[in-house]
Structures are given as C-alpha cells and as structure tokens.
C-alpha cells in the first residue's frame, strides 16, 4: 500500500492510499515510520480519505503511528475516515485515545 506524505509548517500529513489490511499495513508502516523519523513532527495528520477498505490491521497502524508520533513529542489526529473504516474504529473503541473525525461528503 502506498502512503503519500508531505511536511509543512511542522505538520506531517500522511495519506494511505488503497486497502489497509494486514497485507497493506506492512508496507504502509515502513513509509509512515521513516517519514516520522525524518520530520519529527509537532502535529501529524493521518488522512484516511483514500482508504478503500480497513480492518483491525488499520487499528494497529493507527495505534503504532500514535506511539511513534508521541515518542517524537508530537500529537496525532486521524481525519476524513470513510464509513466502513469508521465502523471498525467504533468497534475497537480507539476514539477514546486518539482524536478521530469522519469523512463528510462534499
């Protein structure tokens, strides 16, 4: 799975693209980890608008990203989560520990 990223004004934007399952998560995490190491962001936005499917592997990606960002002294926000991925996040209950917002149709 491809993750595009850009760093602007101490904020790292991460955009995973495609299916975030166990297969995709392995590749996504390599990119995410190296981008956080490189930029040590104050704020990190994990933007999920291009995620076409997510299962519990995505929960592990969100939690691991949060841990890496926190260790670098920053804060993670998860934004633009599509409906299917939101149902998985709701079932896992991680909205209590990380700030998450749903994708709203334009």
């Amino acid at each position: 799975m491809k993750v595009s990223a850009n760093f602007d004004n101490k904020t790292l934007y991460l955009y995973p693209i495609g299916e975030l399952d166990h297969h995709g998560a392995k590749k996504a995490m390599v990119t995410i980890e190296s981008r956080i190491d490189l930029s040590l962001p104050r704020e990190c936005i994990l933007d999920m608008r291009h995620v076409t499917f997510m299962d519990s592997s995505g929960i592990a990606v969100i939690l691991k990203t949060m841990r890496l960002v926190n260790e670098a002294g920053g804060r993670l926000t998860v934004e633009n989560v599509p409906a299917q991925a939101m149902r998985v996040i709701d079932a896992a209950g991680i909205d209590r520990i990380v700030q998450i917002s749903a994708l709203t149709k334009e």
């Binding site: 299962d55 519990s56 592997s57 592990a60 939690l63 691991k64 079932a91």
Partner: peptide, 15 residues
C-alpha cells in the same frame, strides 16, 4: 506484537 491490535475476533463477533 504491536503489528496486531488484538481486535480481530471482537470485530467478527460484532459485525
């Protein structure tokens, strides 16, 4: 480990 969330069966059960 931290590559897995431990939520697999919980999600199967709730979905």
């Amino acid at each position: 480990g931290d590559d897995r969330s431990g939520m697999g069966f919980t999600i199967m059960d709730s979905f």
